[in-house]
Structures are given as structure tokens and as C-alpha cells.
Nucleic acid binder design. Sequence first.
DNA 1: TCCATCTGTCAGCCTTTTCTTACGGGTGCT
DNA 2: AGCACCCGTAAGAAAAGGCTGACAGATGGA
Lengths: 106, 106
Amino acid sequence: MTSEELLALLAAIGHTQRLRIIGELARGRVHVSELARRLGLSRPLLYMHLERLEKAGLVAGTLELSSDGKAMKYIELTPFEVRLNVDTVLAALREDEERAEADSEA
Amino acid sequence: MTSEELLALLAAIGHTQRLRIIGELARGRVHVSELARRLGLSRPLLYMHLERLEKAGLVAGTLELSSDGKAMKYIELTPFEVRLNVDTVLAALREDEERAEADSEA
DNA sequence: TCCATCTGTCAGCCTTTTCTTACGGGTGCT
DNA sequence: AGCACCCGTAAGAAAAGGCTGACAGATGGA
């Protein structure tokens, strides 16, 4: 895990609304509009947060057609597990250097 | 751990410069000016980041007098270990609710 | 046709965070 | 006195992030 990936993860989780989103999604998959209603968020705002969560790999969305023919985007939580300590940070920084070296060789 | 505390921790770690600060401090305690030089940061900027890290409890500073009588502020890393997964998030959200109930009773 | 529901995006505002420049103070050595 | 080093803070610019409101397209049912 590079520091960039680690930062994306930390930034994704590190926000009140996104914490709430994760909390709600832990109860099961929901489609976007319903999720927005439950959390009291505007849909555009929710989209923004979901994009961030998706980029960090914490959440996945699938577009489905409901029985009455309407398009529904269902969001579900991706299991994640990161141990947050000094070693993790050092490992990320080290991996950055290794990538940099690999790039300069190429 | 409340969500507020969790967020403070995530925000504190979740920044490129602060990741580098942690990485450097992992090598041992350093005084502020020296740390700034090593990382190529301006001292005021470093102060800002250290303040954030300190509030989250990741770092501790002690003002000491060096042998030649100059004031030196040494910074050292505080060990930390947080497991970052869905359960941690749920636990934080749950603790928020418990606190809220406790407050409303009082 | 009109209404309710869903999807998605864009422009712009406001707040927070990050960063620089410029100060103030102190010590000891030449 | 002047210089090198240390401490600390304040003001303001710059950038990033969060949020709202308006819009466009699609479906199904009254």
C-alpha cells in the first residue's frame, strides 16, 4: 500500500458524513435516493461522498433495473481492514520509495 | 472511542506532510528546527502540523534546555494502534449515541 | 398529459485547511 | 554589537473540500 492509497483511505473514512454512510451501509445494500433520505443528505452531496468512498475502495455501486423498470443504483460496503500504527505508515513511505526507484529505472 | 476522536485521529494522520513527520520521528526524537530542516518545511508550517498531531495524541513535545543553555523543543512519537474496519466505525457511532443519551439524562 | 420516482452532472458559494512571509522574544560566541 | 542558533505567533494568500440549487434524461402509472 503506497502512501497515496493510505491517504485516500484515511481521507475517505475521516469525515462525519462518510462515517454515517458507512454506518448505514453496514445494515445492508441500499439505493442512492433511499440512502440520501435516510441520512438527510442532498443527493448531489451524497454522490460526492460516494465517489470518494468508491475511489478508496470502501464501497461499490451497481446499476440495476428494478421490477417496475426503474434504474436503481445500489451501493454496498466493501469489507476493509487496515491496522493503523507506525509500522503501517513506515511501510507506506517505504513503498513510495521503491516505486520511485522502479520508475527511474524504467 | 467516539466518532469525534476517531475523526481527529484520521485527520491527523491523513496528510502527506504529517505522514512524513511520523516517518521521521520514528527514527527518534528531534527538536523542531532540526525536524523542519530534514523535511524541508518552514517552521511555522511544521508547528501547525505538530499541533494537529499533538491534539490527536500522536506526538508529544517537551521543552528542554540544551547544555549550551538554548531552549530546545523535542518532539517524540507516541505509540498508537487502531484497527480500522467497519466494526470500529460502528463502535464509534454507537458510542456517540450512548453519550448523547447520558447527556440528555443529566 | 401530468406526476412521482429514479438516474446523473454542473456552476458557484462558503468554510476549512494549508502554506508563506514577517514579526516578536531568548541564549551564547566572536 | 553583530551573528548564529533556538523558541513562538499572527496575518493573509492560496488551495482544497464541502454543500446547495438547478438542470437534463429515463421509467411507470393515474
